Amino acid sequence: MRVAHPTRAVPKLAEGTPLLALDDVRVNYGGIKALKGISLQVFPGEIVALIGANGAGKTTTLKAIAGLLPLASGSIRFCGEPLVGKATEDLVAAGISLAPEGRAIFPNLTVRENLELGAYLHRDAKTMRETIEDVTKLFPRLGERMTQEGGTLSGGEQQMLAIGRALMARPTLLLLDEPSLGIAPKLVQQIFEAIKQIAASGVTILVVEQNTRIALASSHRAYVLRTGEIALSGESKVLAKDPEIQAAYLGG
């Protein structure tokens, strides 16, 4: 199954040009250096995973891309244009959506109301209806629970809602922060199958994931963060066989 209309037109980039590029990005929390000069690239159509231990800087990276944290130095470019200094709502309008860690749904609003809030840039009825249909094709459980309050959903269903709400903005780039956190293994598999379907529909994905095994199995490339720096990077299938990765993250 493919999602029919989840995304705006993918911008035409020169061959070999990344959709997203971070160059020597540094972020500080007071006197703590959270990111110490990371550089990474995400190309159109890819699923790229960010893996690493807790506190390595993974969520900080996504927040910096989404405009939720200021940079101490470095640059972030999307579709070849600089992002630094732009308001978060302008980044959403440009085609970047974030499904945050912890899901951050509105528990007292219904599933439909949560989804509609994600579409605040696309308020016409036809676009709203089509996008909700696409989301419920991807996550049928949401379609069955449209009138339920978000807080009554299971953890896995709330994660589906968080991803669905991010898709309502019709992004070109989807940022996912810990989509498997606190979710039953069976639903984790379903969510990552959905992530693959989203990518197949034309949405580029950068995913932070604590479950290294499923992150590497589901992505094209990966970056390993260690205390605010990129320690390793490469094709996911190659990294999955790396002895260091196996010893540190895969129980090998």
Rank of each mutant, 00 (worst) to 15 (best):
R170A: 01
V238G: 00
G202R: 11
G182P: 08
L175D: 07
G85M: 14
E46Y: 05
L40M: 12
T152W: 01
L91V: 09
P70W: 12
A119L: 03
R103W: 05
I105W: 06
I163G: 07
E149G: 12
R129N: 05
A119G: 08
L176I: 04
N108E: 15
I245W: 05
A9W: 12
I198C: 03
A9L: 13
A56V: 10
D24W: 07
V208S: 06
T204D: 03
D90L: 01
P70Q: 11
E193L: 15
K86H: 13
K58N: 06
A162Q: 05
A222G: 06
A64T: 10
R221N: 04
K36S: 12
V84H: 15
L40W: 05
I195T: 03
G182D: 13
A199P: 09
G95C: 05
G228C: 14
P82Q: 15
P185E: 14
S154W: 09
K137N: 13
L174S: 10
A49K: 04
L117M: 11
E89D: 13
D90A: 04
A56K: 09
L174I: 12
A240P: 00
R165C: 11
A125M: 06
V42H: 02
G202Q: 10
Q189L: 13
S154G: 14
A184N: 09
L98Y: 04
V203I: 10
F192A: 01
K241N: 01
L239T: 00
M160H: 07
